[in-house]
Amino acid sequence: MSLPDKTTTIEAAVARIPDGATIMVGGFGVPGTPFTLIRELVRQGQKDLTLIKNDANETGMGIDLLIANGQVKTLISTHIGLNANAISALNSGRIRVEFCAQGILAERIRAGGAGLAAIVTDIGLGTELAEGKQVVEMNGKRLLVENALRADVALIHADRADPFGNLTYAATARNFNPLMAMAAKMVIAEVETLGPLGSLSPEAVETPGAFVDHVAELFEISEDYGIVRR
């Protein structure tokens, strides 16, 4: 018995994304952002996208390119403060932004990936983030209902992979990637190093390949990962 081969190219994988798709995008700041998949999505030009991402990257990189190109309708995020373009797109009404507390965004995605409908939490009670949300009482406490999130597509950046889609991540490039890799109908991983089946120790695998649909090896690492002076 052997495991299926899911390897493909960046172009072919992104070509499967339709207009109007809801797309989860991994990354927290630069590490873990699938810059090559994003640039290909900009090139192919799919429209009316809903993006789910921790942040809006910085001006001129990552999902900022999709926003600047008019491809994004809605962004579900936790913090867009490092991207002045995204803030001005929000302020001018060019995109709609739904803000979510960071760990609650992670947990809504994890719940979606685990086949659950929602989570209940006290996070955000007494703040603006509670406005318009369903409140339930459990054990004498008021709690907010936060719906689980699933997407049509997840764009993942992994450090190492095998052809079946078993994935590992580097340092703080994990962030939302392992969670989003469980929470979409179609999971596309760009990977820095692709090895043969058996090249990853089963104990080292962080995302089991059964969650992953397409694996595209990166033959060069995007310049967007370059170290910058701050």
Binding site: H79, F99, Q102, L129
Partner: peptide, 8 residues
Amino acid sequence: PGAGGAIE
């Protein structure tokens, strides 16, 4: 800009 993780 959004609260990030500050609320939690």
